[in-house]
């Protein structure tokens, strides 16, 4: 990693982590959503430093664009969220326990895994044509199945909403 990439990485990683902490610690749910956008933008920036431009654009389009808009819709449709914000729950001890266990698992996996980049099989083609070839030729069946699944979920949501 050269100096420029290192500087960019640490700035983006700091931005992402700090805004992620703000998302879970702020009381006001709207502020949380805004910090979530910032966090997603930081992740997209990290993708750019990894030469994965396509994933970065999709990250912004789907997460910072669509998911956040979905959250805004949910906020507008639930009146309590607008007036009372994010009230303290009574499930704090179990939540802490779960988070702690999750942290232990991730830390264990992170320590145990041998972090050797597999030079032989590492992808070299980051271009949009390479991704398209993989999606529509090699892995076309999983791709089609997942789109049918999304269609079914969408129709289900519409049916539920019309009842």
């Amino acid at each position: 990693m050269d100096t420029g990439t290192a500087i960019a990485f640490y700035i983006l990683a700091g931005l992402t982590t700090i805004s992620a902490i703000m998302v879970v610690s702020l009381r006001n749910i709207f502020h949380s959503v805004l910090f979530l956008v910032l966090s997603f933008a930081g992740i997209a920036g990290i993708y750019v430093t990894l030469n994965a431009e396509f994933v970065a654009a999709i990250q912004v389009l789907i997460y910072a664009g669509a998911i956040v808009v979905l959250m805004l819709f949910a906020m507008m449709l639930t009146t309590n969220a607008m007036t009372e914000g994010n009230p303290a729950g009574h499930l704090r001890p179990p939540a802490m326990l779960t988070a702690f266990l999750f942290f232990i698992t991730v830390a264990y996996v992170g320590v145990v895994t041998p972090w050797q980049p597999r030079a032989a099989s590492a992808p070299t083609d980051f271009s949009i044509n390479g991704i398209a070839d993989l999606l529509f030729n090699v892995y076309v069946l999983p791709f089609e199945i997942s789109s049918v699944l999304l269609l079914v979920a969408m129709i289900g949501a519409i049916v539920l909403a019309r009842d």
Binding site: L34, V37, A57, V60, L61, A64, G65, V68
Partner: peptide, 25 residues
Amino acid sequence: DLDIGILYLISISSLGVIPVFMAGW
């Protein structure tokens, strides 16, 4: 001249709603 040029445009334009909502809210 990004490889993903027009996709970049679309993803950036999807962010336009956030400041509008910030102002309105």
